[in-house]
């Protein structure tokens, strides 16, 4: 699917999104932004749940106003904090979603449910009631329901929130395998989610696009801007507004501090930036330049 987001703005009491534009036709696009940056609103607009105040979204050239239901049949959507009726079993829930997505034949539905359950690693839990699943398993059911009907656009909103570290890792592995022949938009405020899954990155900051492009270019922009200080104690210079501290830890010989800055302080060496460093650098630059 070729997804075109054209000048989307949205106001709800205050400006949530401001002139968002991007295009994508395959692969996983990670949408990264702080809480309140407008990620969920953007996902809901692309999912056709919310009308934008300005701009439009095109799905293979189709506008939703004339094609709402045919577009929705091509979208798989995992909303934030996926939930379902607690007493319904996983298999029954997915069978119902199959029927909602117009898979009428019972045999086809059975095959589809089995295939998706295998894909998300829940085949053993097919007879388990939804309410008895762990948080990570519920999210997997959420992914399975989104995958039913093989949608060409998959929207996944904050999928790892509330999961324990092990569930997060296995959920990221699951996401990595979903991008063949489709567009996946993954919205999150957790940098590792994107670092481990996405090829493209859209950084939202205060409702605006701060960056859109491939991950490596974004990371390269922070080269020579990330530093590591080693010393006996925390230097006063690190309190400067020109410096964004990333991490600090006490070592046997003193302290070790990683930070982002245009120029290093004494006793610092340049280190290779990661996505997290680049993200902090990009947002800091955005704040400085307004």
């Amino acid at each position: 699917m070729k997804l075109k987001v054209l000048g989307i703005s949205n106001r709800y009491k205050e400006q949530v999104l401001d002139s968002i534009s991007f295009e994508v036709d395959q692969g996983i696009v990670g949408i990264l932004g702080e809480n309140g940056a407008g990620k969920t609103t953007l996902m809901e607009i692309i999912a056709t749940l919310v009308r934008p105040s300005e701009g439009k979204v095109e799905y293979d050239g189709k506008n939703i106003e004339q094609n709402l239901f045919s577009v929705r049949q091509q979208i798989g959507y995992l909303p934030q904090k996926f939930d379902f009726f607690s007493k319904v079993t996983v298999e029954q829930a997915l069978d119902y979603i199959c029927r909602l997505k117009r898979i009428e034949s019972k045999k086809e539905r059975k095959l589809e449910v089995e295939e998706k359950l295998r894909q998300v690693g829940l085949i053993q839990q097919s007879k388990t009631r939804f309410g008895d699943l762990s948080g990570g398993m519920k999210q997997r059911v959420g992914i399975a329901q989104a995958l039913i009907g093989n949608p060409s656009l998959l929207l996944i909103d904050e999928p790892t929130v509330g999961l324990d570290p092990q569930e997060r890792v296995s959920f990221r592995q699951l996401l990595s395998g979903l991008a063949q022949d489709r567009v996946v938009l993954l919205s999150t405020h957790i940098v590792e989610d994107i670092a481990m899954t996405s090829e493209y990155l859209l950084v939202l900051h205060q409702g605006r696009v701060n960056y859109y492009g491939d991950l490596s270019t974004f990371i390269r922009a922070a080269e020579g801007k990330v530093w590591m200080y080693r010393g006996k104690q925390m230097p006063q210079a690190l309190q400067s507004e020109q410096i964004a501290m990333i991490s600090s830890q006490t070592t046997a010989s003193g302290v070790e501090v990683r930070y982002v800055a245009d120029h290093p302080i004494e006793n610092s060496i340049s280190i290779e930036p990661t996505l997290e460093h680049a993200y902090i650098y990009a947002n800091r630059k955005q704040v400085e330049h307004g």
């Binding site: 999912a47 749940l49 239901f69 929705r72 959507y77 909303p79 996926f82 979603i97 997505k101």
Partner: peptide, 14 residues
């Protein structure tokens, strides 16, 4: 009407 009913069930109903 729960959020999930809106976003995963009514979503696909004409």
């Amino acid at each position: 009407l729960h959020n999930f009913e809106k976003k995963t069930i009514l979503y696909y109903l004409r």
